[in-house]
Design a binder for these strands. Structure first.
Lengths: 70, 70
DNA sequence: TCTACATGTAAGATATATTTGACTCTGAGT
DNA sequence: ACTCAGAGTCAAATATATCTTACATGTAGA
């Protein structure tokens, strides 16, 4: 799968959510800190399930956290 | 990652979209027919990128095609 | 009946996401 | 100066998504 066309606002969401740390977010969604870093920096595309879980943590719809630019 | 909590309306979307076939959908998003089958039947969670591409084919927001039940 | 197509399943291979552990760097506090 | 927490990187291992190929079934049409 080619270049990633997905951007996200996780970093902003974390700070809006009382400056939640990467580690804290990772623990809430049940993955490691490295996975959160990789997703924040758009190193690869997460599974849909993980994307939903992250959005849920912030109480936002998935489309507020992840956006796709074709 | 545990049991899948994601359901989808791909099958309905395909029929609404002039009875688009699994093969046709697969070609439009650049994956194989088996991948579409597996996702339709919720065998596993697709990548976020693929989910966005599928929703785009139907001209719908991702949340209309995939829903997450915590 | 015969053919073609849509759908489903399955096994083995490959690609990618995720984990684990270690290391570095910077900024805030003491 | 020292420590600590947050953030980032890297390499190797594991888990999962995706591919390839092949086969089976049901249904529609010639």
């Amino acid at each position: 799968m080619a270049k990633l066309k997905i951007s996200n606002t996780i970093r902003r969401c974390r700070f809006d959510a009382d400056e939640m740390t990467q580690k804290a977010l990772a623990e809430k969604v049940g993955v490691t800190r490295q996975t959160i870093i990789a997703i924040e920096n758009a190193k690869y595309s997460p599974t849909l399930e993980l994307a939903f879980q992250i959005a849920e943590v912030f109480g936002k719809p998935l489309s507020d956290v992840f956006t796709y630019e074709p």
